[in-house]
Nucleic acid binder design. Sequence first.
DNA 1: TTGTAGGCGTTATCAA
DNA 2: TTGATAACGCCTACAA
Lengths: 366, 366
Amino acid sequence: MSQNSHNQSSHPETPEKPRAGAQEVAERAGVSVMTVSRVFSGSASVAEKTRQRVLEAARALDYQPNIAARALRTGRAETIGFLLQSPGALLGHFHSQALAAFESVLSKHDLSVLISIAPEGESYRRWAHDLLRSGRCGGLVVQSDEISERQLTALRKIDAPMVLMNFRPDASPEDFGLTTVGYDNRGGTEQVVRHLTALGHRRIAFISGTPTHHDAIRREEAFIAVTCSMGLDVPVDWIRSGDFSRAFECGAAETEYLISEQGNGPTAVICASDEIAMGALQCARRCGIEVPRDLSIVGFDNLRASAYTAPPLTTVEHSGFDLGLLVAELLINQIENPRTPPTKHVLETRLIVRESTAQPHPDRNH
Amino acid sequence: MSQNSHNQSSHPETPEKPRAGAQEVAERAGVSVMTVSRVFSGSASVAEKTRQRVLEAARALDYQPNIAARALRTGRAETIGFLLQSPGALLGHFHSQALAAFESVLSKHDLSVLISIAPEGESYRRWAHDLLRSGRCGGLVVQSDEISERQLTALRKIDAPMVLMNFRPDASPEDFGLTTVGYDNRGGTEQVVRHLTALGHRRIAFISGTPTHHDAIRREEAFIAVTCSMGLDVPVDWIRSGDFSRAFECGAAETEYLISEQGNGPTAVICASDEIAMGALQCARRCGIEVPRDLSIVGFDNLRASAYTAPPLTTVEHSGFDLGLLVAELLINQIENPRTPPTKHVLETRLIVRESTAQPHPDRNH
DNA sequence: TTGTAGGCGTTATCAA
DNA sequence: TTGATAACGCCTACAA
């Protein structure tokens, strides 16, 4: 819409003119439009004195280069799409944190961030493709927590700056030809298991997340691999599948199942997220199971609330903020060097020990 | 960047051409570019048969109208800026929810959502103004939780579709000339106080949020007004100022202060947010104060975790999702009817009674 | 219902 | 270091 009737500016000599273009600025500064263009795009060299005159004229006229004209002319969109798989994705603290960090870096590079949530029933590829093709975006960040192999293959065909955020990074980047960033879920899980075994636990259960979610898959895989390599015996029904979108409920329900084998159940439960762990905590409380005396519970994510649960939760920290910074950096690099080969990045995680874990109670230990 | 080398499409007859324009589509369909334009902008009527031919040609060529050219020509940006006051704003579940809802509505109208976080040390007005002036945005949603009167006055001068999200709606819209949407903090607070007095509480304290935050201000004002009108005596130091950005810590610290007056302290504490209440809950637990027997605690927000605290939290629910939907609706209306007078909207809140509130313990009651 | 001409504001190219 | 010119792809007139 942009109805134009701005006529207040901190500058005294403001005109009533609705919208100044490079032409007006040029006239006022006594130069050509090209010089104005050069000053604002920073492309070629302009004599310092001329530059100042142009800038002054621009300020007086409240001039801003028209982004649409620029995009049309250069064929480059100064906007990066941040693609989320579902509306719920925004509610997770990690994507929010990543987005905030991402935006802060991009805005410093005069790049805008466009948010787009996956339209129901449309292929990932078409969605991403359309954003690029219409000129809306010059690059993409794709939240790929639950992306399938097929969708991934389709995405590879898209030739534009792109970073996959939180794709399960088990293959090498050459294998799928895309730059990815993710957490070291395996390392985090291993730290948790070692922490528990060091306390003396041998009977450890696992409550997983959404079965298609890469974080859940990786954490579960790692749990199995690590417990196995340590010679721990984990009954198959101690690995419970869960659902991140109904984390609390599911944590409670699965915990109820696990503690039903009185005296024979696990002495510790590792949850694929802190929210699941909070559900587990409530279930234990309701059933009269004391944490950590009767049961140790561990989460994953280190939400802010996790230091304030009863008892405070032992968990694995990983920073969405760092993720966002890294994604921004990689994307900008791809824009500046279009032929950069894809790379894979794994961010560190850190075990935070609080009060929800302790030695197993002697009565329940072997 | 958009290096063009897409050459895979579900359609068989895909060309190697990098990027089809309306011209190519027109040729292929045997019509003029104008007809193509009409088909895609839906502006004028086109014979159904022609329309189909054009659509088919477009599909074959993978044509998408160039958004920059359109914006340049029409002077209309099909992008709406969603302006946040701080990176932290994204972490609150309400803004995330609102954003998700907002995006879902806008995308149905072929409008894009641009995220922008307030640059440090730049005036609100300039920030908003630049986004509009550069043609990046055709309208704005401004998160105004902590906007000052001065900034507000400056914003009024901007003439573009705009909605203020969560501005303290105590003046009538004509007074400040801007459309605003917010929650009924007063009503919510009143419900909480009535709930507590109905249980028999007479000694009620309040832990507020960030002093400049409109929600905190309104909730605190409402608390004072309601307790006063009910003849409750609230010592001045029972109204504690807080900080939403350090909510947990501050909830714990202020609660510690409040319970230090053993036997003479409040029997109930109302917190300006659930996170503050979680801090309060932890403090009580640490100090051996049993909730709700010795102290009732109420929050505000109904976070998902609030049903899983120990004990589950009595709180006030308000929907960020509904907020986002309403904001979208109002903004679209302003775009379609540029001269719509500003309006003010207040969303309902709802008391959720859980287990953190109960009758005051006889020993501590008068 | 369809086509023709022109220009939106910027930058690439070439010349001075 | 600066300027003139053309073109980016689309849409608003108007004419047919």
